[in-house]
Amino acid sequence: MPIYLYIDHRSAIHRLHPTVKVFALFVMFWSVYWVDHPLALLPLGILMVALAQTTGAWPNFYRLRWLFILLIFFTTLAWMVFYRRGPALINLPIIHLSRASLVFGFGRGLKLAELLATSVLFLSTTKVEEFTAGLQRMGVPYRVGFAITLAFRLAPLFIDSALTVVQAQSLRGYDFNRGGPIARARRYVPVVIPVFMGALRKANNMAMALEARGFGISAAPTSYIDFPMRARDRMAFAIVAGIGVLYFGIYYFGYGAIAVN
């Protein structure tokens, strides 16, 4: 699985201010949290599909299609074991198959799938530096933002280093696929050690390079990347906030809940 899902499509969503996108991410969490019924969750699902189409994020959704399907299926199944409410439709061992448990479990599955869709959409339309800029605008210290950006940037490099070591070891006849799952996992330890040590060798130089450039001198450093807030960003902010209010209203007025007979 690639570590970057970003797709350069230049859609209106791509061009939004990073703070608005991070805010939209939180509003999605908020909206999904307040309702339980699958029918109440459906409009958000449709919105996700429409946004995936607009932003050209389909390749990422297609790549994760099985994760979406299995997520909904297993979450529904898990709640049919634990949510033992409503009259049983069929008597089964362990599973309590009632209308209420089915609707509740499916609703939970849909919720989690919509949260996954939100994160895929967010990563498809937001670069790492935009994400950290958005977090910093929301009060996260820049050193933390820097560590997040650096971690996002370093992770693919470490994966590449690991793959190089795997290929080099395989050429020397080292068999990574021998034994059961635990034995196979242990055979990857000789791969992790050189990657680890290579990373640490970088750490010293990186710290010196950062300090030479004045990292840590100012509490509010300037940046070459500027994200001005435009009228469209304010409008998007208002729409997103409206969705959040609407979903809280649905909960507050008693819609979106599951009736148990």
């Binding site: 820097f146 560590a147 650096l150 971690a151 996002f152 992770a155 470490f158 990657v195 990373a199």
Partner: peptide, 8 residues
């Protein structure tokens, strides 16, 4: 950052 990247 290195710990986070290795973990991820």
């Amino acid at each position: 950052a290195i710990s986070a990247a290795l973990y991820a």
